[in-house]
């Protein structure tokens, strides 16, 4: 599903002393099947932005379209449930939403609410539980007996079991250890590819944005600050520093290298291995000259 934001403004408690403009005149497009990273500081409007994606908030001004669903002050979809079943959201610390007695019931909670038949839920569970890296014997256990990392996986499985077309991830790896982070991010990327999902990742990690996204949107103070391919956005060091964001480490290093060696090696999303190869050429270059 294509996602289109047209001049979206969102104001909390308008016309009150506590009025706060969370989003201001934001316009962008997310093509169906793409993987988009939304980057910005806490308070930049990221959370407000994503809660528009499944109609939890309705724009104060402007229009949000998700496939055939359209959200604006004048027009709310009648079928909000339909929208929410097509857009799955993994919130920050999603394990905080667990409440059922068993893991199985908790995973089934979402699909059941969306009217998916019991048989089908059961079938999906067999597929999703191993996919998120959970052993099948956890199904009958209480989610509250599991480790933090496992609880996180249960919550994620609950979202995936609805089989959404759009997957919204709000810092899905916060608080996990490095291995856990990598596993979860890789799993989402695999799903994204296999099921041609449209994925929206909200993250603080420039490294993750660079590694997985094919489009990056930078938010600052509720406004869209920059947008483009990762290799375009992440090489604009000065612009990013202006809003106190860093460029990914590989870009940082490349820039320092270029400065020290007076070269102008371009950044084109090369891997560390490829970078090493180029550097090696430059360093040895002196030999032949």
């Amino acid at each position: 599903m294509d996602i289109i934001f047209e001049n979206v403004t969102y104001i909390y408690q308008p016309n009150s002393p506590f009025q706060h403009i969370a989003l201001q005149d934001v316009t962008f497009q997310i093509k169906s099947g793409s993987y988009v990273a939304i980057v910005g500081h806490t308070g930049s409007g990221k959370s407000t932005l994503i809660s528009h994606l499944n109609g939890l908030t309705i724009p104060t001004e402007g229009t949000v379209s998700i496939g055939d669903y359209s959200l604006s002050k004048e027009q709310k979809p009648n079928d909000m449930k339909g929208l929410r079943s097509r857009v799955g959201v993994v919130f920050q610390y999603p394990e905080h939403q667990l409440f059922e007695e068993t893991v199985e019931k908790d995973i089934a909670f979402g699909p059941d609410n969306f009217g998916i038949p019991k048989e089908e839920i059961k079938r999906r569970m067999e597929e999703i539980v191993p996919a998120v890296g959970l052993p099948t014997d956890v199904l009958q256990r209480s989610p509250f007996d599991l480790s933090g990392g496992q609880m996180r996986r249960v919550a994620i499985a609950g979202v995936l079991a609805v089989k959404p077309e759009v997957l919204v991830l709000d810092e899905p790896t916060a608080g996990l250890d490095p291995r856990g982070q990598r596993e979860i991010m890789d799993m989402f990327y695999q799903l994204h590819k296999e099921q041609s999902l449209t994925t929206v990742l909200v993250t603080h990690s420039m490294e993750d944005a660079l590694k997985y996204a094919d489009h990056v949107i930078i938010l600052n103070n509720g406004k869209k600050y920059m947008e483009g391919k990762p290799e375009e956005v992440f090489t604009q060091k000065d612009a990013l520093h202006k809003v106190q964001l860093d460029v990914p480490e590989i870009v940082q290093f490349l820039m320092k290298f270029n400065h020290k060696f007076s070269t102008s090696l371009p950044f084109k999303k090369q891997t560390i291995k490829e970078l090493a190869e180029t550097i090696q050429h430059v360093v040895r270059g002196a030999e032949s000259s």
């Binding site: 939890l56 449930k81 929410r84 799955g88 919130f91 939403q97 609410n113 979202v159």
Partner: peptide, 26 residues
């Protein structure tokens, strides 16, 4: 939490009273 559960299809705002009371559990 209410946002997260609403995203999982819980309806806090409409429907019969009985359903809405049930919606408070999650």
């Amino acid at each position: 939490i209410s946002k997260a559960q609403a995203s999982r299809g819980v309806d806090f705002k409409t429907g019969p009273v009985k359903d809405r009371i049930k919606a408070v559990v999650p």
